[in-house]
Design a protein around this nucleic acid. Structure first.
Length: 479
RNA sequence: CGGGGUGUAGCGCAGUUGGUAGCGCGCCUGGUUCGGGACUAGGAAGCCGUGGGUUCAAAUCCCGCCACUCCGACCA
């Protein structure tokens, strides 16, 4: 093993040696996050925040294109408000942080820091909704929320995390259901077209659905190690929350009615999904759409006449059609190569004296490390093309990993054997009984990921109890 | 909340049978370098996680606490 190779390996734990450690290494060494003094609260560093920012910009555009408006709600929820919907409070009470003092005075009523804002939105809807003409109200907010998790990991499970939460109310159940599915599709499209992460769309079982929801829909992504990551959820509430919070409107028939409601969210967890889907031994690999820098320019022998100037000229040119970083630090080129690979920049452009003589540069793809010599006259076509190819390859690799790790089973013995040998999705039929779901958890360690929209008929009976099967379920270990 | 691991310089670590701290990387200042983590000379930097105890003497032994981390249970 060469000296350079050894150093690279020391920097980041090999992905197949210890995936959890690899993940932590990438988060820290790619300078995405730092730990803060409060356990479980992460600091998003500039590079990590830039990724999140790109995610938010794209999604925000998608939300607005479908008629949603951004709002900002308070950070505090009075206890009485949180308790209005029974299932909801039961689901969230164990993990909320409470504020009991204001200054030096104990509060009459304690308030929690929002773990999610359904209650706040409902309270507000009750104030502003009067007529069917006010509907639909399609709101979204970008904010952070707090859930007092017991064990925490950067991006995947932090006590405070950043997200968006959409909250909408509609005149009819059908409109709300359509909205729920539309937003789920928005998430799926975003993951597949921008993050290059293939997802399985489906419905959560009752056991796994959101506290207070009538139905929860999910997109499930599979990580490099075969574990599942719930990457976005969209909930249909029916009129349960409306009734609990007295949200009413006068309908077309002049009768008071309860609106039908949805909520949906994705979080900074998506950054974790990107890391664990695309990364490799050298570190992060970022999909071009959300990479803070899509191209890094590394001048070689920058002190030689003309090199620095040429590099700046290229940076200005490339900057017109891609996010570009010109690394003028006095680190050696080799150091820069490794550094920017670790940070996942999709494309590296090397420019040195030899290139300038030949009116060319070297373009290196992060995913394959393939080098191409490109004429300086062709940058405007070559760079976008390579970025597109890289993106397509990331998606393809992730899809292949998922397919290689998805198995069908018709008996419990098969399920147990598959689960013992590998991480991945195991699909089986299911009777719909929660007892079987719990058995799967206790005996095999698998949770139901979803009942996918794309159903297959694998057998007639539930492998767990032998009763007639109702639906096909994806099972897996999840983050 | 259960089980494991780790706390010594910014990071990674060493520190023997107790004797008051060292290595590599990084950092700062020069010089030479520059196409895969350069070389060299000099330099700065540590209440040894924290509180107690044992001892003439504790990074080292004993007890408590705290933090981080990994694996489970719970969750976006």
């Amino acid at each position: 093993m060469s000296e350079q190779k050894k150093k690279l390996v020391e920097a980041i734990t090999p992905i197949n040696e210890d995936f959890a450690q690899w993940y932590t290494d990438v988060c820290l060494k790619a300078e995405l996050v730092d730990y803060s003094t409060v356990k479980g609260c992460m600091i998003l560093r500039p590079y990590g925040y830039a990724i999140w920012e790109n995610i938010t910009h794209i999604l925000d555009g998608m939300f607005k294109a479908t008629g949603h408006e951004n709002v900002a709600m308070p950070i505090f929820i009075p206890e009485s408000l949180l308790q209005r919907e029974k299932d909801h409070v039961e689901g969230f009470a164990p993990e909320v942080a409470w504020v009991t003092y204001g200054g030096n005075e104990k509060l009459e009523e304690r308030m929690c820091v929002r773990p999610t804002s359904e209650t706040l939105f409902c309270d507000h809807f009750a104030h502003v909704l009067h007529s069917w003409r006010d509907l639909p109200m399609k709101y979204n907010q970008w904010c952070s929320v707090v859930r007092w998790e017991k064990t925490t990991r950067p991006f995947l499970r932090s006590r405070e995390f950043w997200w968006q939460e959409g909250h909408t109310i509609h005149e009819t159940a059908q409109e709300a259901i359509d909205e729920t599915l539309q937003q789920l599709n928005t998430y799926a499209d975003f993951c597949e077209k921008y993050l290059m992460i293939p997802v399985v769309k489906g419905k959560k079982t009752d056991k796994e659905k959101f506290a207070g929801a009538e139905a929860t829909y999910t997109i499930e992504a599979m990580m490099h190690d075969g574990k599942a990551l719930q990457s976005g959820t969209s909930h249909y509430f029916g009129d349960g929350f409306s009734r609990a919070f007295d949200v009413q409107f006068t309908g077309r028939d002049n009768q008071l009615q309860y609106p039908h409601q949805t909520s949906w969210g994705v979080s900074t967890r998506l950054v974790g999904a990107i890391i664990m889907t695309h990364g490799d031994d050298e570190g992060l690999i970022l999909p071009p759409a959300i990479a803070p820098y899509q191209v890094v320019i590394v001048p070689v022998a920058a002190h030689k006449p003309g090199v620095a100037e040429k590099a700046e000229e290229l940076a200005a040119r490339v900057g017109k059609f891609a996010r570009v970083k010109l690394d003028t630090s006095d680190n050696s080129p080799g150091w820069k190569f490794s550094q920017w690979e670790m940070k996942g920049v999709p494309l590296r452009l090397e420019i040195g004296p030899k290139d300038i003589e030949k009116n060319q540069c070297v373009l290196v793809r992060r995913d394959t490390r393939e080098k191409t010599f490109v004429s300086l006259d062709e940058l405007e076509t070559a760079i976008p093309r390579l970025l597109e190819e890289l993106a397509a390859n990331l998606y393809q690799r992730a899809l292949e990993n998922r397919e290689a790790r998805t198995w069908a089973a018709t008996t419990m013995d098969q399920v147990k054997q598959l689960a013992a040998e590998n991480n991945g999705y195991i699909k089986t039929m299911w009777c719909g009984d929660e007892a079987c779901e719990e058995k799967m958890k206790e005996e095999v360690g698998l949770s139901s990921r979803c009942m996918p929209f794309e159903q297959e008929h694998l057998s007639d009976v539930c492998p767990c109890c032998g009763k007639p099967a109702k639906v096909m379920v994806y099972w897996g270990k999840a983050y």
